[in-house]
């Protein structure tokens, strides 16, 4: 049975909420199904893996593309992530979070690792030093806002202070280290670390995330 890929967040708030609930692993039918799929994948069921790919592949690729940007490299990373899901499926523990959290955490980390290995630390320092080469923050924020229109995530993001939001978004969507974010925003390192944490905590509470 082929499943439709999950569409991007659209203008239907109810549909958006349903999807977001599925993501955070609350007791929705979708999340239960994905757990069952993962259990089957861990037992070597390739058909179950195909179904899982159809469910999460588009979101994995979306996260990877945001961070890596280059289309052909993004494709490689998405492939790496999905094969890693297959190889390490037995490590997934439903007590520690949802299937999507597990896979998207892996996808983001792989994407970040790819970006870091592509650019020597010197390149990145130079890049940080020249703000004009950096994609303007407003552009990213706008893109994110369009995606989240009417969505729960957008509401949650708008509850952050400007600095919390910039720190979280520059790290998550652009893949900067906290040191680079500190340079970009001309704000002390300790403050950036703190804003990343309290920004995420506020998002967590606003969206009712539990594990």
């Amino acid at each position: 049975m082929a499943l439709e890929p999950i569409p991007p967040l659209g203008s239907d708030p109810l549909a958006n909420r349903r999807r977001l609930r599925a993501v955070d692993g609350a007791s929705s039918g979708v999340a239960r199904d994905e757990e069952q799929l993962m259990a089957a994948v861990a037992r070597g069921d390739q058909a179950a893996f195909g179904e899982l790919y159809d469910r999460v592949g588009g979101t994995v690729h979306g996260v990877v593309r945001k961070v890596v940007r280059d289309p052909s490299q993004s494709e490689e990373v998405t492939q790496e992530v999905m094969t890693e899901v297959w190889r390490t499926a037995v490590r997934f523990d439903p007590d520690k979070g949802s299937v999507r959290t597990w896979i998207l955490t892996m996808a983001h980390r792989r994407a970040i690792d790819r970006v870091r290995s592509e650019q020597s630390s010197r390149d990145r320092t130079e890049r940080v030093g020249h703000r004009d080469q950096v994609r303007p923050f407003d552009e990213v924020a706008e893109e994110v806002e369009v995606r989240f229109e009417h969505g729960q995530v957008r509401d949650a993001l708008s509850s952050l202070t400007g600095l919390q939001r910039e720190a979280v978004e520059l790290a998550y969507y652009q893949g900067y280290t906290y040191r680079e974010v500190s340079e970009l925003l001309d704000t002390p390192l300790g403050t950036i670390k703190t804003r990343m944490r309290d920004g995420l905590i506020r998002l967590r509470d606003a969206m009712g995330v539990t594990t």
Partner: peptide, 20 residues
């Protein structure tokens, strides 16, 4: 960390793009 990773995954969940 588990909770904040779940939160970060929600940020990522909005980034759908059809795989090639």
């Amino acid at each position: 960390v588990a909770e904040l990773q779940a939160t970060a995954a929600l940020l990522g969940a909005a980034s759908y793009e059809a795989p090639p």
